[in-house]
Write a protein that binds this DNA or RNA. Structure first.
Lengths: 245, 245
DNA sequence: CGCTCCCTTGATCGTTCTCAAGGCCCGTGG
DNA sequence: CCACGGGCCTTGAGAACGATCAAGGGAGCG
């Protein structure tokens, strides 16, 4: 399996939540993917757009965000290599959110037509993509309960737990350490807090011995403690290895 | 079209977001649906369950909720007649949230097996159900940005706008008036606020001449004003009539 | 070497929570 | 018919989490 090719990455990610047959892997590995590099903070698609293709993250982090009338931003999701941030656009023709790069990114683009075609011929691939959008929705639910009912300290811990688990699925964590090229302002937009408060919360997490950070590298020092602080149960990520079918 | 039959209601709701052919309508109208009555505040499925069927709301309101370790509840969605609150369970075998009745309800149940069978034979019905789950996800995104970035007053206005539009799609609004059998405590769990604060916010909305309420009946007195207060743009509901494909 | 972006810190303000209690409506039972 | 009880709504007051405002410091880059 070409884990370093765009297709191999996508397959690896899909397989972390859905079992694929050899034939299905083969079909997916032959999908034409057009690769493009992006700088940080570039919009990929915007609210109101009618995309004709989906975007696969190959390197870097992207985010899905919405703006309020007052101009405040809420990041509703981060996406890491292997993810498809706008997979929904396959069936929702108008974007109700924007997608942007957070760090420098390499992105792959796949035309809707190609995806529709492959879905028509391989119902189980339809199911795999559908399932991927359902896991995204599950993450939305989890974030929402965090923002609505947990304090900022716990939300931040939760976010770090989630990113660690998701990055692990694509081999981007070593010894509890991973690269997190996300500014505190962006973390703030994600957890629904102010930049200042996020800064203080991160200091607390460090002071409590849960994490350490050096530049954009984050190390989890106390996984059990961080999970407890974040009230984190990976069930909602619906990974196959957690006993989810 | 039997708009009063369980199947007719489901079809009407689906058609508000997805165009169906005569044949597809026919197939859906023949789905066997087992109808059961529920009292208020009854769990229909719980976190950790492995459901073998999906639940269609026929009468009343249901909610999807999650609990934090501290026992706080976040309602992440309300569902009204025509909706399928646990459609996700078709592809996510373990429930990551619970579903409960809010008011007295009539619910219809459809085995997963039946749904999978129909999806295999009618790819466009697959697409319709997939799309329904995508619209649910879009609503999660919108709620999340509200909870994260809007104040309680605006969130409450937004929620009322959304319910009005969704109830309209199934013919449950007359002259801007609809039945809202949801307690203030439940509204609080949905907008991520305390019961006390929701009470005050509702008083403000009434004082501002935006709504009126009598018992469980809510009347929208100033639709434009309520939309403005809620920063409400129905785009995210992806109804066909809003120019969404 | 200076600019810009990001992180950090201090102080004040405010939305919202929590605690506590009183009132209303309505169904139940005597 | 009326007393009782239990939800649910309402109100008040104090506390807290977190926002906002303001400013300084560090690191990378041209």
């Amino acid at each position: 399996m070409l884990a370093h090719s765009p297709n191999g990455l996508m397959i690896r990610k899909l397989e972390s939540i859905f079992p694929l047959s050899d034939e299905e892997r083969q079909v997916l590995s032959e999908l034409p993917i057009q690769v493009t590099a992006f700088r940080p903070d570039q919009d990929i698609v915007r609210v109101g757009d009618h995309p004709f293709q989906c975007c696969l993250v190959l390197q870097g982090f992207t985010c899905v965000y919405k703006l309020t009338a007052e101009g405040k931003r809420q990041i509703v999701a981060f996406h890491v290599p292997g993810d498809i941030p706008d997979l929904q656009s396959l069936h929702l023709k108008v974007m109700d959110n924007s997608v942007a790069t957070v760090s420098p990114c390499t992105l792959g683009f796949i035309p809707h037509e190609t995806l529709h075609d492959i879905c028509n011929r391989y119902p189980r691939i339809t199911a795999a993509f559908w399932r991927e959008t359902l896991v995204d929705a599950s993450i939305f639910r989890e974030w929402m309960t965090g923002i609505g009912r947990r304090e900022a300290y716990n939300r931040m811990a939760h976010l770090l737990c989630e990113l660690k688990v998701r990055l692990e699925a694509v081999g981007l964590v070593e010894d509890g350490t991973f690269d997190l090229p996300i500014t505190q302002a962006e973390l703030a937009d994600a957890v629904g807090a102010s930049t200042v408060h996020v800064n203080r919360v991160l200091q607390e997490l460090r002071a409590d011995g849960l994490i350490r950070s050096k530049g954009t590298q984050v190390s989890i020092l106390d996984w059990a403690g961080l999970k407890a602080a974040g009230d984190f149960d990976p069930l909602y990520l619906h990974r196959r290895r957690d006993g989810n079918a």
